[in-house]
Design a protein around this nucleic acid. Structure first.
Lengths: 182, 182
DNA sequence: ATCCCCATGTAAGCGGTTACATGATTGG
DNA sequence: CCAATCATGTAACCGCTTACATGGGGAT
């Protein structure tokens, strides 16, 4: 149930409409907690029912501006300090495929790992670009967002290095210990 | 829809019952693709309907032994070589919290990051232990399982290092560039 | 006999994705 | 006036989690 806390977190910086929040999700939280329009409006309704947010203004086109309440702030704080984060990579179909590499031809397995390294490297480059773009901005979200971005950079680098190592490892597996050529 | 391919992958090593598969999930795939009993039996039924597996034997207590079919093997192969793996860490409530570290007292934020480092280190130690346990075993699942385990080791180490870096970074954020003490 | 393990199944609920649906307002 | 954008909402579906439910068979 993190979407609700993502919303509370964003509203803790100031009031916003569902539409505003959606934009913020797209530009700044997209890489850590993507949310769809559908989900967002639903959650805002539930948050209002629970008393964690209230409608503070109504604008044109039925626009509703929400603000966080004291109860909402308390809930956000509780989530931040008391709730243990869920393990990051609990499910990975990328690693699941690794378990079954044995059913592939050696060449196919190699290609798979090679592609993992390339994909990781591409992600890494994209994040590097993103860092340049967001390097200004002294608001809280930007400052801590860069901290999260650093995680992404390190993570993708690790992923790339592992995939390259694993590709090497394939040879070791097929040509075991004592094997000498010729 | 990776559960079905996890099942196909396991059955590609030989026939097994739902119960057998459940045990294998618990001991070897638990860290990459956990599955519950409930899910597993449902999926086996659907796989049979789709013609990817068949019941090859019935044992005591209603036990049904499933084997993969040629169509199942083809589907497994297709999934392995053609389907792009989904990005590993698409959602992270651990990183989501990082975005909102600004709402906490400096001391609380520091505690949060410290705990991340500790948790990562603990995971790292657990995986190191696991590696000792599974270091034998020359079957395909063990060999490639160790490759996946190496990913876990590198990943948890990166996570720990990042959290330690981020904790340092907190100071830099609160005491900006030109600030001198006294 | 009894207890533990083997063994399979069903149902409710939750969060997320995709698609559908509608309409107002503003800028060129 | 027309298009793009603002703006909110509903419904169907899918996979995962938790809990419930039932019963047979082997070991001591």
């Amino acid at each position: 149930m993190s979407l609700r806390h993502a919303v509370l977190g964003l509203l803790s910086e100031g009031p916003a409409s569902g539409y505003d929040l959606l934009k913020i999700f797209e530009i700044s939280l997209a890489n850590v907690w993507p949310a769809t329009q559908s989900q967002l409006y639903g959650e805002l309704g539930r948050l209002a029912d629970a008393g964690f947010v209230t409608v503070v203004a109504e604008g044109p086109r039925g626009r509703k501006e929400y603000a966080i309440t004291d109860a909402g702030r308390a809930e956000l704080h509780r989530w931040l300090v008391e709730v243990e984060p869920t393990p990051v990579a609990r499910r990975s179909d990328m690693l699941l495929r690794v378990f079954f590499l044995g059913v592939l031809e050696p060449e196919e397995a190699r290609t798979y790992l090679r592609r993992r390294a390339e994909a990781a490297d591409e992600n890494h480059r994209n994040l590097s670009e993103l860092r340049k773009v967001v390097s200004e901005g002294e608001d809280s979200l930007s400052v801590y967002g860069r901290m999260a971005l650093e995680w992404g950079l390190r993570f993708t680098a690790t992923q790339r290095d592992w995939a390259e190592w694993a590709e090497q490892e394939l040879d070791r597996i097929r040509k075991p210990q004592g094997a000498s050529e010729s």
